[in-house]
């Protein structure tokens, strides 16, 4: 979906790999799930926060809990979108938060 919106995408199959790739590629924007085995999205956010991350993070999750949204925002996520996002909403979020 993100490629369809005209962006180059680097995928990572899980939180640990995601953190590695963020370090290696320094992306303009991070899109992250919450529910992942071993290293969850919360752990990714915590790790990024510890490192003083400035890259905007968009959380994509099926979880609709208000408290989860608040936790993500407090850990540095710029926005929390529920799955599956509409193209236009995800596109707007990426464009709004992209570090260009």
């Amino acid at each position: 979906m993100v490629s369809r919106l005209g962006h180059e995408v680097i995928e990572a199959g899980g939180g640990a790999l995601g953190l590695e790739k963020i370090g290696e590629t320094n992306p303009d924007c991070i899109i992250c799930d919450l529910l992942m085995p071993e290293v969850s999205g919360f752990m990714v956010l915590e790790e990024l926060q510890k490192k003083g991350n400035t890259i905007p993070v968009i959380i994509l999750t099926a979880d609709i809990q208000d408290s989860v949204r608040e936790t993500c925002l407090s850990l540095g996520a710029r926005v929390v979108l529920n799955k599956p996002p509409k193209d236009v909403i995800l596109g707007e979020a990426i464009n709004n938060y992209l570090n260009l």
């Binding site: 099926a62 609709i64 809990q65 208000d66 408290s67 799955k83």
Partner: peptide, 21 residues
């Protein structure tokens, strides 16, 4: 995944608690 997240999320939002899935 969508139905159960929405059902459980509605319950936990109503009672002001949080669950981890």
């Amino acid at each position: 995944n969508i139905v159960l997240n929405n059902v459980m999320g509605s319950i936990t939002n109503a009672i002001n608690c949080t669950v981890n899935y």
